[in-house]
């Protein structure tokens, strides 16, 4: 198959999919290697940028997904005025941050770090499918353990959890004096 056709196919697949598509999956569909697909996507990304398109291919949650350029948001928002979902609260953000870095983690562990009870926050995060219950921790009480979901990665536009910045250590004072 010609390279030009391969490129068209990759573009078409990304256009059709509403979820991030893994390079492996695209490779499977058009019988290419994963590396070839990655190269094509890179080409497409550059081409999109160069030719001034309103779309771009983003790397999200371990796959690729087409989306609009951020600078178009003020106009595009007019299309969806009533439906733009609310932002997450500070409490939700703190809780999510702890889960993202320490997963799998129990509710007690989260509460101990935040110094606040977290039941409601956990419930709403579960409802928004940003976190999930992974199972139970062995040990007394067998508490539930929580971890983040692929939707978490999508929500924040992350390729994978490694994209989270390293936690910044304290201001040089190190451990207990």
């Amino acid at each position: 198959m010609e390279y030009a056709l391969q490129k068209k196919l990759v573009e078409a697949i990304l256009f059709l999919k509403e979820e991030p598509v893994k390079a492996e999956r695209i490779a499977e569909i058009i019988s290419l290697s994963k590396a070839e697909v990655e190269r094509i996507v890179k080409d497409l990304q550059e081409e999109f940028a160069r030719s001034g398109r309103g779309l771009q291919i983003f790397e999200v949650a371990g796959g690729y997904q087409m989306g609009t350029l951020p600078e178009l948001a003020p106009y595009l928002e007019r299309m969806y005025s009533e439906e733009v979902a609310g932002n997450l609260s500070n409490a939700a953000m703190e809780t999510l941050a702890i889960i993202a870095y320490k997963q799998p983690v129990t509710r007690m562990e989260i509460e101990s770090i935040r110094g606040v009870k977290c039941e409601h926050v956990l419930d709403s995060l579960l409802k928004r499918k940003l976190i999930r219950i992974k199972g139970r921790k062995e040990g007394p009480g067998r508490p539930l353990i929580y971890c983040t979901t692929p939707d978490f990665l999508r929500y924040f536009g992350l390729k994978d959890l490694d994209e989270l910045p390293a936690l910044e250590a304290g201001e040089g004072k190190g451990e207990t004096p």
Partner: peptide, 22 residues
């Protein structure tokens, strides 16, 4: 540390809200 991480996530959220997915 986690408060800072939460701040970072908040910024990502803000940026991400500007991208409309199909």
């Amino acid at each position: 540390q986690f408060k800072e991480a939460a701040q970072w996530l908040k910024e990502r959220e803000r940026l991400q809200k500007k991208i409309f997915l199909r």
